[in-house]
Amino acid sequence: MQRYVLRRALNMLPVLFGLTVAVFLVMRVIPGDAASAMLDESPTAAAKEELRRQLGLDRPLAEQYLTWVGGVLHGDLGTSFWTNRPVSGEIRRTAPVTIELALLASLAALVVALPIGILSAVKQDTVWDYLGRSVSIIALSVPSFWLGTLAVVLPAIWFKWVPPVTYQPLWEHPRQNLAQFWLPALVIGAGSSGAMMRMTRSALLEVLRQDYIRTARAKGLAPRSVILRHALKNAMVPVITMFGALVGGLLTGAVITETIFNLPGFGSLTINAISQRDYPQIQANVLMFGLVYTVINLLVDLSYAMLNPRIRYG
């Protein structure tokens, strides 16, 4: 197991190295110039050149890359073109919002998806199953930007209620914070729950056909105990794999819902950086997205063994 963890962690290094190259090249090689984006409508060539020199964009690409990666390795992700402040400060400021949103959304997805998925599997081919499957496919089909829009528009019309717009940190004003976060978390969670419901259903169905379930039933165990204590634990292995894949959905869901609900999170920061063409900030954010995504998928892989000891790592 230890060797497997080490090997997987080492395997991440070339991927992360590739990420830095990809992010850097996407930002620099493709046409579009930060200097012209930052200056007025029709900048003079001299003004543009001067700004490019100040931003370091006139240096050879390899040199720019090595300077940037050298900084990243020392924990310096770069300096914003616009604010002239370290981009890592902005990331530190906005990350708690997105982390809280992603955790609450995961919780919402689990709370919605598990019972429906279990009911669907246990009552296979009954009206409950069809209902559950319809809910899951609807959850998969409704885009989060529409659900989020409706979540803002409809309560405003029906109840004259709008979600609070001033952000309050969780540890300072927990009640106001949760009043602001529950709706966006539910919107992201609903999107992720569709895939999770389906996976829970099919994984549980597969496990329910196994011999040890028949044995447990033959021993006279109560059906509830067979499902919750014996079947569900093994059925969770593929559901957790799915969770790794859903992290991508949570992150992109955060980008969209933070925009809709006016939350000062990492997603809003990225969108703002993109609209201002603040290359260092975009570079750092995309790198962070990739890093988080890769690390969570590694953790998901490693968690299999805890749930299902039959999985051995070579």
Partner: peptide, 12 residues
Amino acid sequence: LAFPGLILALAL
């Protein structure tokens, strides 16, 4: 694959 799809599309 290390990029979530929408983030990659946004960056591009």
